[in-house]
Nucleic acid binder design. Structure first.
Lengths: 138, 138
DNA sequence: GAGTTATTAATAATAATTATTGACTTATAA
DNA sequence: TTATAAGTCAATAATTATTATTAATAACTC
């Protein structure tokens, strides 16, 4: 999800209709660094759209995943979280504050992931996930 | 879960009772490379223990996680899988055959994960997960 | 072996996500 | 415009993985 216009464009070209609900989810997600759950998204948007249903949130999220504008990540065991940044990057979960921090390869000294072939297997994508105590909580 | 005796010892010292159900789950998990789900474990063990309940499988798995004899991994969106290898290693999911392959750092050329500190955050553990086409399916 | 207590199986409960459906919009064409 | 067709919405029900409850049972201690 690189920009609002970009995403709108993509939706149009894929034949999706631009409804207020969808635009609200898109606007909420663009540039969002909090890796929200469907619950959090629904909770927040319900303020502006009191009739907004969970199904619509999920439908929109699944639609955005299909056109590669967001991705889902497994942070906790019982629900999914969503990230508008679909570029390869690393997630760090702080076990103190439960925040998920993004880490980009440039900032990741000591980390190297060659994602072509590994032990004979052909790699399409990877996910690197850290757990620990974040810099704010240390 | 390094060995049967080892695990038994650990259970005893933690005050857990050694029931046939628990021993069955432990035996099933030791050295198991298939990363089974609770469903798969239950299905398999039900043959020998027809009254075995799902709760018991989950209880045992959670207990084994608590004493660090197994770990849970997020392979798919809708359920957890379990791995008796608690040493740091990498998982590779083949999108063709759905098998999860273990990869150890020695075999992982081009992969380097320094797990001490990253971007100011203190690292406790990490998980590296690949998706692609495995060597058998290529 | 008897007593204590954790554990079991069965069942119900919880909670995230998905499916269904009928009313309602929107986009396009007449 | 207005009609029409298609897609989308909210509400609701359904599904499914996992956890909680509970009375009966089995494992450990003495």
């Amino acid at each position: 999800m690189h920009s609002f216009e970009n995403t709108i464009q993509k939706l149009r070209s894929e034949g999706f209709k631009l409804t207020p609900q969808r635009l609200a989810v898109i606007k909420y997600m663009i540039g969002n660094k909090s890796h929200p759950s469907a619950l959090a998204i629904h909770k927040e948007l319900k303020r502006r759209y009191p009739t907004l249903s969970f199904s619509t949130v999920y439908n929109t999220l699944n639609m955005l995943q299909k056109i590669d504008e967001i991705r889902s990540i497994h942070v906790f065991d019982d629900h999914l979280n969503y990230d508008p940044n679909t570029e390869p990057h690393i997630h760090f979960l702080c076990s103190k504050c439960d925040m998920v921090h993004d880490i980009f390869l440039e900032q990741a000294e000591g980390i190297q992931v060659y994602a072509g072939e590994i032990d004979g297997h052909l790699v399409d994508s990877y996910e690197l996930f850290f757990k620990g105590t974040c810099k704010d909580c240390r």
